[in-house]
Nucleic acid binder design. Structure first.
Lengths: 220, 220
DNA sequence: AAAAAAAGTTAGGTATACCTAAAAAGAAAA
DNA sequence: TTTTCTTTTTAGGTATACCTAACTTTTTTT
């Protein structure tokens, strides 16, 4: 019954809502996020509202209902389990996973997801450090901090990222920053906020404020 | 570009053609196989013909072109690799596999299939003993059957295995089963599928269904 | 060979999900 | 407060892929 398009909308609305910490998601934002025209989005929002998946008031944006939120979380669960599978089992690189997981997340079989979850050992986090919701839509809490919030001489271990864009993930690979990488913050530039780090085998490294803003860590 | 519906048609035409050993596939057959109405099938056949994926003559049935055959084999390759994955890794049962593989086969990523193939160890046969086409559409020729597909009192000769794991090969050695071993199937358990065999020098032997599933034979 | 049956096709309709262009609503500026 | 600009919606169109009903072609039977 839930179509691929509907899944995309619900997932996007969920992400936009949680990223903005603000209530309604607007038509243009959504159109932007989905790569569609606002007119198309309006039409779909009306259909989703008719299914009680979201609250829609013309010109006022939308909010997911509990039902819609559960649907979104089911899709996100599938997406993140597949990402875990792609990285852990098929040896995909960070930047390769997202596009493929976006296809796999729409495969509609509860049995498949259940068995996949068991096969993977019931992981709690995906390869980017994002929590994997359980089958009831519960999202495990993570105590992660942004790397940019640390002050010298804090030590930490990289646990994830807040941005999945392939270009960004590729950038991290070139810098040799991965999940599990240990680091120490040496210095922060007063001028542009860039951070001097010391990573794993005593290697110095400078990263921009912008990069540090997208990296999640556990401080040690 | 190839849609899920087109994939279904091409796959179905391929199977109907090879199972019947007869040239054209007719509209009604296809409609039956796909669970659609003949009128719908006619429409799609015309669109597939326009794409040069098959030869269509009104009232005379269809045949795949080489291009259409390659497309069909690409889908079948994906289907069988996923079947292998579901059974070998996710511990799906025989009867659970097909429906889920039918969903997964439409996930359109060459990278994914390539990595999956490698992860599975480049299997030549799916769990049912059907050959898995390679990425060029070549179907490994097997005059082979799975030992497990034989029924008493079939006689056969072992021609290979589909599983290279040392523990399995060791197991075969202890059972005195090798390439070239002649055998006769005496009985098959209704309960667990185990087979009573008579091998080479008049020696009786019982093997599990699991074992018989990994043994290729030429029947005599 | 004509009539009957079966098989297949065309015509026209539906739902999904997108599009462009024009109109309307709401927010911001004069 | 009226105009302007931005945002959003409505109206109408497209392509896919299905449907039913009516018609045509082929095959089979009488």
């Amino acid at each position: 019954m839930p179509s691929i398009s509907e899944d995309h909308y619900l997932k996007s609305i969920y992400h936009l809502t949680s990223r903005k910490k603000r209530k309604p998601v607007f038509t243009n934002e959504l159109a932007q996020a989905l790569g569609l025209r606002p007119a198309s989005v309006t039409g779909m929002l009306q259909r989703l509202a008719a299914q009680r998946l979201l609250h829609y008031r013309p010109y006022q944006g939308v909010q997911l209902t509990p039902k819609g939120r559960l649907r979104a979380l089911a899709v996100i669960r599938k997406h993140r389990l597949w990402e875990y599978f792609l990285v852990e089992k098929l040896k995909f690189r960070w930047h390769e996973v997202h596009a493929v997981a976006d296809l796999l997340e729409h495969v509609d079989s509860d049995l498949l997801i259940h068995r996949l979850d068991a096969y993977l050992g019931y992981p709690k986090l995906d390869p980017h450090g994002d929590p994997i919701p359980d089958e009831n839509g519960h999202v495990p809490a993570t105590g992660f901090l942004l790397l940019s919030s640390l002050r010298p001489p804090a030590q930490a271990i990289i646990t994830g990222v807040t941005e999945q864009h392939p270009a960004f993930l590729h950038h991290l690979e070139r810098l040799n920053l991965h999940r599990g990488t240990r680091l120490q913050v040496r210095q922060i530039s007063e001028y542009d906020g860039s951070m001097d780090l010391l990573i794993d085998p005593s290697q110095p490294l400078t990263i921009s404020r912008q990069t540090a803003d997208q990296i999640l860590v556990n401080s040690l």
